[in-house]
Amino acid sequence: MAARGKKHAGKDPVSDECEETNPFTETREEDVTDEHGEREPFAEKDEHTGTNTKKPEDTAEDLTAKRKRMKMDKACSKTKTKSKSALRKKQLKRQKRDYMHSLKLLNVLEEYITDEQKEEEEEEGEEEELIKIFQDQQKRWQQYRSVRRERLNEMKQLRDQFLKTVENFEDLCDRVFSDEDSELDN
Rank of each mutant, 00 (worst) to 15 (best):
Q138N: 02
D181L: 07
Q135T: 08
K66T: 12
L163I: 03
R151K: 15
R140S: 11
L172Y: 04
D115P: 00
P23T: 01
E111R: 08
L172H: 04
S85I: 03
K11W: 00
L105F: 13
K90F: 06
I113C: 03
I131P: 00
N22V: 01
R94M: 13
E128N: 02
L158G: 04
E180G: 01
S85C: 06
H101Y: 03
R140F: 08
P23F: 08
D34M: 10
D179N: 06
K11P: 00
G50Y: 04
S77L: 12
R39N: 04
R69H: 13
T53N: 05
G10C: 02
R39M: 11
V147I: 11
R4I: 15
D181G: 03
L163N: 14
E29I: 15
E110W: 08
E127I: 10
L184C: 04
A2H: 09
T81E: 15
D62H: 10
D136M: 08
R4M: 15
A75W: 10
D136S: 10
E19W: 07
E180R: 14
K54G: 01
R88A: 09
L109H: 11
C18T: 02
G50E: 10
L103G: 03
S83C: 02
N52K: 01
T27A: 10
S85H: 12
R67V: 04
R97C: 03
R159F: 12
L92Y: 03
E183L: 15
S178H: 13
D181W: 06
K11E: 10
R149C: 11
R94C: 06
D171Q: 15
P41M: 11
D179E: 15
E154M: 14
D179G: 05
A86L: 13
Y144V: 00
C18N: 05
D160W: 02
K118W: 00
K156P: 01
K82V: 10
